[in-house]
Design a protein around this nucleic acid. Sequence first.
DNA 1: AAGGTCTATTGGTATGACCATAAGCGCCCA
DNA 2: TGGGCGCTTATGGTCATACCAATAGACCTT
Lengths: 252, 252
Amino acid sequence: MPPQGKQDGRASGTAADVGSGLFNPVNDRRISELIVDQVRLLIRQQQLNPGDRLPPERELCERFGVSRVTVREALRVLETNGLLEIRVGARGGAFVTKPSKERVGEGIADLLTLSAVSAAEATEARLILEVGMVPLICERADEDDIADLQDICDRQDDALATGDYSINLSAEFHERLAECAHNSAVQMLSHSIRGPLLMSLGRAQQTAPEMGPVGANEHRELVHAIQDHDATKATEIMRQHLGRTARRVKNL
Amino acid sequence: MPPQGKQDGRASGTAADVGSGLFNPVNDRRISELIVDQVRLLIRQQQLNPGDRLPPERELCERFGVSRVTVREALRVLETNGLLEIRVGARGGAFVTKPSKERVGEGIADLLTLSAVSAAEATEARLILEVGMVPLICERADEDDIADLQDICDRQDDALATGDYSINLSAEFHERLAECAHNSAVQMLSHSIRGPLLMSLGRAQQTAPEMGPVGANEHRELVHAIQDHDATKATEIMRQHLGRTARRVKNL
DNA sequence: AAGGTCTATTGGTATGACCATAAGCGCCCA
DNA sequence: TGGGCGCTTATGGTCATACCAATAGACCTT
């Protein structure tokens, strides 16, 4: 039988139209979407767990009774959503992934970037998040956190001395700082808002060379306040620290 | 010529291996991904704008020099990312969509839901966002905003009187409140954190019937404070309002 | 003029084949 | 005996072709 098989195209059935008193809302969705929903549900219900491997595409075809194209579209969607990782080769296949903080953060950043979020808006959002998380940080930062933060401050001083200071070091500080809140939701949100921000901000930082030393000093003061569990003082420092950036963005 | 075409499988070329002094990093990505990148770039650069229609799949195949399957996978990914909307039928095709606030918010909510964000974490994040946005609201809320908020409060009172009060009314209040900040980034973030929260919280609200009147009163007080542009007072009200919820979650 | 019907356009799906990749196994040679 | 080279195999990636389904607009009928 040459290419001419038993396809009936969409999943809409003509069988459901007759006999049932109320006309059931005809299933108008793509078959691949149905598969996506099914797999996603299994993952959410933890019947499929991170690390698990799905059957090979060809076997999934048989099980779902669809063609490989359809299965592949479903897998592609799930992969795009960060639920699966697909590897080629002998022991390859579709593996359930645990959405990592980074991955989720990237996804949010993408969404924000692609929507019409201006630099000013992103800056405000960042200010709210980063200032708001300071009390949590003061409460929860442990010795490791403090040590890491101080290490970053040291490297900042070194970089300033040699003229190597870059915005990356500052970003690293804030990134690590967010970890200190010990709350992954807060961490992801603040991480993801930083992406679009950096993109809009671009190289503005480098056009303000005086920012380096001042910013670095504030970082260190902030660490001290955190070490003292002085939420009030720490919050105030953070507010000023970010407020300066905010004003600069507004003048852009 | 029966199915046996000119396929060379991956995009890796055997042609680039010879002749070039340095071995170019072999292109190891999927062809469909390359197409995705290309289209996404066009959208980001606004060479493709919301509402624009891409050429039909079959034409894209010719232009890219790939098969329809590949083009379709790319389109599916872009659709999943909320960049395209695909319509079937005569004047159908792939249309560039403007990621709406709702859509982006849903995407973020999905990501947060699928990651391991606990109710406690989500509650904290929400508290930070919603308390932090209050000053913005006090500064920017216009007459329409106030009127809408008061309308919601009125309906809450009615609902309380008739016993119809539900968590949805409260959610509507907070949703509208976020709009008053006139910052789409903040709005999206706070919206998206509310999704996972409601899911974990479930029906807890209904098990605390005394919450209704108290919460509704606080809503109204909040509106008054906003009307007076009293950021300090409004912030304090919001902090208490959400703080009670936060404590309840912790006791869960 | 109102309504239904035809047709062209376009996405959705099915088949079958072949290529590329990567892991495992075993053979061959040193 | 040890190490590397090549085969085998499992699996995803891609291609080509064909047909179905949905939709809009033109066209025709009444």
